[in-house]
Design a protein around this nucleic acid. Sequence first.
DNA 1: GGGTACACTTAGCAACTCACGA
DNA 2: TCGTGAGTTGCTAAGTGTACCC
Length: 556
Amino acid sequence: GFARTPQVPFGERATDGSKWSFLEHKGPVMAAPYEPLPSNVRFFYDGKQMKLSPEAEEVATFFAKMLDHEYTTKDTFRKNFFKDWRKEMASEEKSKITDLKKCNFNEMGEYFKAQSEARKAMTKDDKLKIKVENERLLQEYGFCIMDNHKERIANFRIEPPGLFRGRGDHPKMGMLKRRIRPEDIIINCSKGSKHPKSPPGTKWKEVRHDNKVTWLVSWTENIQGAIKYIMLNPSSRIKGEKDWQKYETARNLKKCVERLRNQYREDWKSKEMRIRQRAVALYFIDKLALRAGNEKEEGESADTVGCCSLRVEHINLYPEKDGQDFVVEFDFLGKDSIRYYNKVPVEKRVFKNLQLFMENKQPEDDLFDRLNTSILNKHLQELMDGLTAKVFRTYNASITLQQQLKELTTDENLPAKILSYNRANRAVAILCNHQRAQPKTFEKSMQNLQTKIDAKKDQLSDAKRDVKSAKADLKVRRDEKFKKLEEQLMKLEVQATDREENKQIALGTSKLNYLDPRISVAWCKKWGIPIEKIYNKTQREKFAWAIDMAEDDYEF
DNA sequence: GGGTACACTTAGCAACTCACGA
DNA sequence: TCGTGAGTTGCTAAGTGTACCC
């Protein structure tokens, strides 16, 4: 169930900015120490065997484990890896090993492959032992006490060392992600609690008692210098309440969105360039659910953009295209280097403004040179309390789900209703550009499904023949069988449609982060659909508050 | 305003699990 | 009983947005 404190009801937290008054936990699980390779697993440099120091060997194994990944062929990856690897080498190693091309990691690679094969081939009993040990670790480290409630921790393990794999064309790919020691770790818990012990012979970097934040453990990673946190599971009170708040803010936007839209339409005509830019950007964020687009430091990460950071090269303008007027073509890499490609007809004023913004600019110049997310968000804050650019994504996602469900749900059988739900969900995922790589097994799995469908069709036509020839007293039973087969066939066909429509769309992200769960809960109640058909166990835990709260007439 | 530190949400993919059919 | 693959979970990168400093 969902944890609530009796003293402070749901949604009414302390006003002094404190997030909890009591917090006790066991600290993180450190990464397993490095186990040196057995001596029969060799490394060769320039054809000659070479025994590596443990430090250099460990980093070499990181590379060896990735050998059949495309990464290891990329120039940037290899260059970064080699540079960082050399830092870990002893001085003789460093002077000998000067060319990555001459390094032969094959025996190491084979060794790890064999190991993973062996793991797969373990006896049931050995697998069970591992499972039991994992469960023990979860029970010991996976929970904390926050304000009288035992809460599940999300990521209680410290990230193990390895080679950094960024997304897209990341300039730092291949760099060594170093091992985190207790001396790097800050523990956060309440003063009166039992502090987690650091491993024998070590010390935490710091133990602090900051109840203005929600994290239990933090450390700074060495690739970007970013802080990493251990926090609570989405099922926790603290996350659930924040989630609920997020949707309430989005519902507030619903109340005033028409006013805001009128406002930015007016602003398209402003005498001031900065206001016109702000208004056009906001139009994109609203209409297309684009992300805000903070500035990024060049060379620190992949070159991706959002709305405010769009460059001239990311759009093309067509006064007329495919029979439509004033078409804007977007083509850019967004978060996680996922491509956003869209052709949208826009209002004439928007189009004229865009032409103006692009005048006398180079392709690599900012489209909105008088705008950034900070300016935009300050403006939004003035229009509505708590309003920021990302609220539009939440609002448009949730309102789209609600509308689509209304439009698509028909009084049919259960599988058809589920298909309608998935289609509504899909409309949102498309809006938010939540893509995925087509599963490698897609074609095969579609074929398998088609085989099943064909077999079912055969069964059905056999049954039909039987019905014709059956004697009257058998007819009733035959009819039942016939009905059952038809149902099974329909189910398979719906499944095939759903899968085909979904091959390059990821539904999970919108379901988990953008869709007010109360819409789905209400829909299930209204149509008598078990919630399990829509949310799996984890999702039901995360959305327990909504499952408790929403009635069948809930309106986002 | 601009830079930076920090906290927190959002994201896709890989690994794992478990139910199902051969 | 085993192998398969769809669904689930874990992992951790990559965003957003605020606070605070100058």
